[in-house]
Design a binder for these strands. Structure first.
Lengths: 226, 226
DNA sequence: ACCTGAACACCGTTCAAGT
DNA sequence: ACCTGAACACCGTTCAAGT
């Protein structure tokens, strides 16, 4: 850290204080410590400045998280994934969900803020293209893409691997416990089904959900829109 | 506040320090100041104690929020709402969504934590009953109830009235702006559809979503479960 | 313009110590 | 057991003041 002869070409320790530098640092911190550590203060520390400085480049924490998510979405393969349109649509949605799955906090961001980043738009456009290829009318596809992405985003939020401690497991066990010991008088249908409600391999459930949404969207005409 | 002659029967200013008292206070604070003010510290202040005291009755903030939500769900009408099973199912889901809609922060809770409260279980049981009445096989209904509640919960999170400032509106306008000015070369399908992607009366979209899920679930058999 | 120190106004949770 | 003061370890955001 001595002043003077430091060669600035040689791997600068800190990214520049720009939007790109901030987002890049956010990605680093996220991968190393999880999204919950991607805070203005933590980032400012990493960038050797005060938190106030970041507000020149980023509106607020939510916008920062959205930028991080868009960056992540940039890595999912959208073309040449093989198979017919239905298979390719499934592949895209699974890739999308995987990104959110491994980081449920970002999935929450996807639900709460309207994403407008270039990579999210690319996913959107690809899904629309595939639905069109599958013979869906444009208006119908416009509504279908919404529920497809919403459903898989929500599912990621719900089932996403809470990498923090075994919290998710405890919660899940509590649910199974509750479903199993429920009063048959008050909740006859839950009691009848019991743990079946929550069972089944996740992949099979995801696939059934996908087929259900697609079959439904194909056969349910939109109401006349004024 | 003078000691001595205060008649304790006369509307005690503070609820007792019990789980019920805490949840009741939480509801008051929520209605008066919004869920984001339902914090351990705020509640402790309201109950004239320190935040640490609450941990005797409540595991953590998340559990507290879940308890508040369950309380709210206790008010939705589940029986004698009129119409055939499909109409009644629609009514239940709309009531459920309305609760979440007016409090998106609680909708987030519904997504993140597995709810096991008595009133949530009652909603679950009712939906299962109606699907069964509609002729759906038990196993099929078990999976269908999951996607129905998940979808309407997610939708509430996404579109819920952000009563805090005009934040939601800004966000929405930004999306419309983005969809409208998108590059037709990079995003041909989005450009083609434009604002149509986001248009349509919310109620009509909700209804289409409902019919789509139901039609899909009715016609898409589950894979053989081992 | 860009940048920042410091402040304002908060959080959740734990723990040692009291009753 | 139940209850608590105090502490630990953080947050987001604004603003006046500097360069």
């Amino acid at each position: 850290m001595a002043k003077g002869t430091y060669n600035r070409r040689e791997r600068p320790a800190k990214p520049a204080l720009t939007r790109e530098g901030i987002v890049a640092t956010a990605l680093d911190v996220m991968r190393a410590e999880g999204v919950e550590r991607v805070t203005m203060r933590r980032l400012a520390q990493e960038l050797d400045t005060g938190p106030a400085s970041l507000y020149v480049y980023v509106r607020d924490t939510e916008e920062l998280h959205a930028a991080v998510l868009d960056e992540l979405l940039g890595h999912i393969p959208l073309t040449d994934t093989g198979g017919d349109w239905r298979t390719r649509l499934w592949t895209v949605l699974m890739s999308y969900q995987e990104v959110l799955y491994t980081n449920p906090s970002l999935a929450r961001v996807a639900l709460v803020t309207k994403l407008t980043g270039p990579n999210y738009l690319a996913v959107l456009d690809t899904v629309l293209a595939l639905l069109t290829e599958g013979g869906m009318a444009p208006g119908q596809a416009a509504w279908a893409v919404d529920i497809l992405l919403l459903m898989f985003t929500a599912s990621a939020v719900e089932h996403g691997t809470q990498q923090q401690k075994g919290d998710g497991d405890k919660n899940h066990e509590a649910l199974i416990q509750a479903l199993d010991t429920v009063s048959p008088d008050r909740y006859p249908f839950i009691a009848e089904l019991g743990p079946d409600l929550v069972s089944g391999p996740p992949e099979a459930r995801a696939r059934w959900t996908f087929d259900t949404l697609l079959n439904g969207a194909m056969t349910t005409p939109r109401p006349a829109v004024g």
